[in-house]
Design a binder for these strands. Structure first.
Ligand SMILES: [Mn+2]
Ligand SMILES: [Mn+2]
Ligand SMILES: [Zn+2]
Ligand SMILES: [Zn+2]
Lengths: 134, 134
DNA sequence: AAGCCTAATGAGATTCGTTATCAATAATTC
DNA sequence: GAATTATTGATAACGAATCTCATTAGGCTT
């Protein structure tokens, strides 16, 4: 049976405190900095569980790192993610949903799924990266 | 200046011979099996170059591995991929391109790029999975 | 054809994210 | 409280990708 541990709860809460996608390593690091003695393997396990249970969204960053974010369950949506700081904006786009379904149907594909993520530099990170163009 | 080597050409051709997305490692493996003494690092470098030059498409597999596929150069496009057999259809969608750019700009994000992939079951695999609904 | 310059190669080392081990711990049940 | 066993975590192990650097060879000049 599944047991409730303070470690799982700490990961759940740390995810919720963060507004963007974070890696398991950085989440572990911030937990340790905050005084928690939680182990790295436990953070990986908790995040994987949360993702399976639908309490977290996960995605592969451009360089293959797994990133996680607390997920408001229920509504399907996509994300606009800052490559630098992880700031994330939730995006709904019915037009994209319809497009994905129709393009699948046009080619005879069934049970369509889609991965739609937009990456960029958020306003703050854009200024930091190129102060000459505010 | 850029030099033409048989290694680059071997990678380009091996990519073209392959129907779907392949990893650098498996491409290197098949090249070696075919008798080529090409090195692994060279395969990685050639694939990265081909992707930059638009001659190859790349995507991150579910487990973070980079996969490559020969690409008809010139036009930016996305893919409709069969989850079962790997059959891939190239798709163009200017509306999605414009949407990705505008949604980034609306939120102050710069240097946008996007990941847009549609997965499903191709016609053949749909029939195989559910023969009662042809 | 021969030399020169240097981009490209590749075997091996290295990095780094992630997973496996396994003895110790602690959550749950009785 | 005792027993059971899921969970933890320090560490080792793994694997994809990159780096190092001595060597090779492409392209150009003479
Ligand atoms: Mn969607
Ligand atoms: Mn596109
Ligand atoms: Zn940012
Ligand atoms: Zn198929």
């Amino acid at each position: 049976m599944k047991r409730n541990t303070w470690q799982r709860e700490a990961v759940r809460q740390a995810l919720g405190d963060n507004e963007g996608f974070v890696s398991a390593q950085s989440l572990h690091s911030s937990l340790r900095v905050a005084g928690s003695p939680i182990g790295l393997a436990t953070v990986y396990r908790a995040l994987a569980d949360l993702a399976v249970e639908g309490e977290a969204d996960s995605l592969q960053s451009i360089d293959g790192e797994s990133l996680y974010r607390a997920c408001t369950p229920g509504q399907h949506h996509h994300h606009l993610i800052c490559r630098n700081c992880g700031l994330t904006v939730e995006i709904e786009a019915d037009a994209v949903e319809r497009w994905a379904k129709s393009v699948a149907a046009e080619h005879g594909f069934t049970q369509p799924n889609h991965v739609v993520d937009v990456f960029g530099l958020c306003a703050a990170c854009s200024v930091a990266a190129d102060p000459s163009r505010p």
